[in-house]
Design a protein around this nucleic acid. Structure first.
Lengths: 206, 206
DNA sequence: AACTGACCTTTTAACAAAATTGGTCAAAAG
DNA sequence: CTTTTGACCAATTTTGTTAAAAGGTCAGTT
């Protein structure tokens, strides 16, 4: 299933391709962006793309990964900051929403298109889930070390926390009405914050 | 949109029809159960069914309502019991899972079929959501009156509680793997209980 | 090594034909 | 007057077919 590029792609050329591909993906989504489209925008032939990438999905994943990398970088900064646990969690939510917005933009604008691409998102999400969980776990561990939180099983709690966020997100993303209103991210953020409040209260040191 | 039956249906005949219809729905789901199927099982003609019910969806809804009524009855008993708030909530989860199992049975066995029926479930769920929310609200209010819980906005908290359960449920119901293993309800129950634990801790009186 | 145009194969789109099924109705049965 | 029926209609779903489009490969050019 997994293919790998034959050659190490020059960084400059890579980012150029990803930039142009990302614009197409943002406008038309994965399905309605053809390799010819990207190639044309780049001013090269379709075959040239296949010289650098094994398939279309690989380009899409690379674009996603770039966005993901940016988010993880911000999380790394958070982990190195001196903020208190409640600030850490709300900042995390803030970054998470920004990341979500980037993915949504990158996905497509319509609700139907999102539903169609869902399987791919799911497969990408699976890998990412573990990463996010471990970041949240570190965050919680920090709270414990600082005596701000009770001694809990950080892996279990982090896993559940991320799981609930995902469930809330996917449910809301399936509500067609909110897509049309165009404020899905606002709604999701509100739910995220409410849950975070509850979650935090339940594990705070008394 | 809403049609109403012309005549008051004799209770005995009604339950007979619902019983037979329910068996079909349980085996094949709403879409793949035809009116002729039900009529044949009943030993009458299709037109006879339409003498009692305006349309197929109405039969399905009646079957659902019967199940829902049973659940709401149990909740009523809970509200009149003397158990402590944590027992109330876990009992609620217990009944909720049983109700879910009934609906699943009533729905169909395959994952794909569930996705197809989703719109109808969604519309039914919308009405039910408010009812469930108000029941949970009463439950929480009981906890407050007994000084077991902090003074919170019961409507807000009940709404969010039910919303999270629904999100968790729908996410898990979309995991094809779990359907095949056949222990979806176990998995959902586990998540329900974990969330309930957190939720309760966050609003317990110290 | 970087790239192209022609080529192959698989997916998707579009459309029509056929079959199924939800729903109606006048008339019959009791 | 209540209940049931078989024939009938309209709308939806299913199926099959065909043409276009798009993903992906490759021998060969620059």
């Amino acid at each position: 299933m997994e293919k790998e590029e034959k050659t190490a792609i020059p960084a400059e050329k890579l980012s150029k391709i990803l930039d142009i591909a990302q614009k197409r993906f943002a406008r038309f989504g994965l399905a309605k962006t053809t390799m010819s489209d990207i190639a044309d925008d780049l001013g090269v032939s379709k075959a040239a793309l296949y010289y650098y990438f094994p398939d279309k999905e690989c380009i899409f994943k690379k674009v996603m990964a770039r966005e993901q990398g940016s988010f993880c970088g911000q999380m790394q900064n958070l982990l190195e900051s001196n903020k208190k646990i409640d600030a850490l969690l709300t900042d995390y939510i803030e970054h998470r929403i920004e990341y979500l917005k980037a993915l949504l933009n990158l996905g497509q604008l319509t609700h139907e298109a999102f539903s169609a691409t869902k399987p791919l998102y799911a497969s990408l999400g699976k890998e990412f889930f573990e990463r996010e969980k471990s970041m949240v776990a570190k965050l919680l561990q920090k709270g414990i070390d600082r005596k701000e939180l009770q001694k809990i099983n950080v892996d279990e709690y982090a896993g559940f926390f991320v799981h609930v966020l995902r469930s809330l997100r996917l449910y809301t993303l399936n509500l067609e009405e909110l897509w049309k209103q165009g404020n899905i991210d606002k709604e999701i953020k509100k739910e995220y914050l409410f849950f975070t409040k509850i979650f935090l209260k339940s594990i705070e040191k008394l």
